[in-house]
Design a protein around this nucleic acid. Sequence first.
RNA 1: GCAGAUGUGGCCAAACUGGAUAAGGCAUCUGGCUACGAACCAGAAGACUCCAGGUUCGAGUCCUGGCAUCUGCACCA
Length: 572
Amino acid sequence: MKISFEQGIADAVAAFGFLSADEALALLSVPQESSHGDYSVPCFSLAKILRKAPKIIAEDLASQIQLPQGISRVEALNGYLNFYVDRVALLQQTLCDIAAQGLQYGRAPRRHERVVVDFSSPNIGKELAFHHIRSTMIGNALANIYDAYGYDVVRINHLGDWGTQFGKLIVMYLREGLPTDSTTLENLEIQELNRLYASFSKEAKAHPELEDEARAAFAKLEQGDSFHRTLWTAFKSATLKELNRLYAQMGITFDHYTGESFYEPFIPDVVQELEQKGLLSQSQERDVVLLNELDLPPCLIRKSDGSTLYATRDLAAALYRMRTFQFVRCLYVVDQGQALHFRQVFATLAKMGYDWSDRLVHIPFGLMLHLTAEGKWEKGKTRSGHSSLLRDVIEAAHDKVFATIREKNPDLPDADTVATQIAVSALAFNDLKNRRMMDVKFDWDSALSFEGATGPYVQNAHVRLCSIAHKAGYVVQESQVNWEELVDEHSYALMRTLSLKGQRIRQACECDEAAILAQYSLDIAEAAHRFIHQNRVLGAPEERSRLFLVQCAQLVLEDVLRMIGVFPIRAM
RNA sequence: GCAGAUGUGGCCAAACUGGAUAAGGCAUCUGGCUACGAACCAGAAGACUCCAGGUUCGAGUCCUGGCAUCUGCACCA
């Protein structure tokens, strides 16, 4: 029979008659300080109703309350009513749940509602810069979190595979007179595209007419010119080759790679609909949707040469996604610099009469800043070159990890693969451990730091748990556990941390904040490291009981690590 | 100029819907491997939470007004 400790306390408080059980439940919290008990009810808000000092109220309640089932004692302190649970009861209940549900423990039941997550979404034709890891890792983690909270998640990589940038690349490619035979195009490499893009930017400064040429070339591409189309396809597949290699290293997958070009066929209908609904205005030969009443600049739909823009394609994408997926929520995991763009797009959809436009949510995050020559932190720009490439950072991290493995664990099999997994996990963790709106100041030392609150710290805790379970060579069942052997400080604290999994998933999902789970993984790892250090498992009289706790901790940690994009490796 | 984000020890930062003595990490100092993985643990030191008012029994958190940094603001995405 399951005990609800929270409900029991709420009912006991409600029995006094001045609060309902629901109100008492709302007041109930878990103290930060474990010496303050397992649950507490602050009595300050009761002071008005009872017209007594909170301290007195807490003391009165403590002396008169009927202890609910599973609560061993209650204490009044500083106006708080602190409840201490019966450790054996909570240990037994929590650990048996974990053992029975395994990795599913703490996950919510399926809701049969769909959530679309649009993340990573890099531009085709450019290499992934290190700052692209932000949308990729935050989006991946949020997708995992929504899944854990019971939603059916659709992961979309909204590739930037359309737009004037391709005009630029085409212009530059032809200007340099590069060969256009099929073999050359098939073997095109991403670095070459990067170079073309950079030299376009340079040349365009001296010859501004190149910008017009690029726009013309894109217009031609958009009109379906087959030669331009051939070049575009080659550019795209060269980029995708490299992207897929990086995603594989990071353990990231998508359900759809529907980039901007995918929505091209739907554009005429969108423009027509805007026209029919009387929303289009002309401004300097461009088609725009005016949003003056919302204090927003107009949303640009069509350029003077008739070609489309980012916003137009986002409108088409939103309509397509609604038709196709019937989502209850659609997340756009894109940096905060684009907040205005999304407000414009969402507002335009609202003006079109789509009441579901409020299901579209921009999930902004802070920028990755780089130190300039003048000593100021600024947004990294791939072009000006002070932004590092993702593959370079992964490689540097791999090399550093590999050297550490050679030194600490020279016999580790598959060391190269493990080094990559640790490296990528460290970068993921570093990106997720702080609230997403915080800017990240990139520097090599902190990006490659692996001590303290880092990826390797949480992975190491998992490795140690696995190692103990593995060396034991058998699996403990709950019937073999003596719960009294787990009431000590470190065992109990570890169990208590594990018990919070479901609530942390809920919190992370409700505020779209993956950092909550990253911090939680640190809590688990810390409790595990302490437990392992303090309590000998194998060969101890309490071996079976402690091993059971180890098994449970491993399961919870594994699932949480996976959610935040950290590889739950078993040896390092 | 307008709008948004951020401001917490030397550095990076946490704090669930306002709650107890403002977590934790890095760096510094001290201990701990013949103990299941020391990529670890234990301890010390370090804070007018940007400033000024206000609301409240109670403010890092809410309100008003400043200041600082970064970002965005019509034919790039």
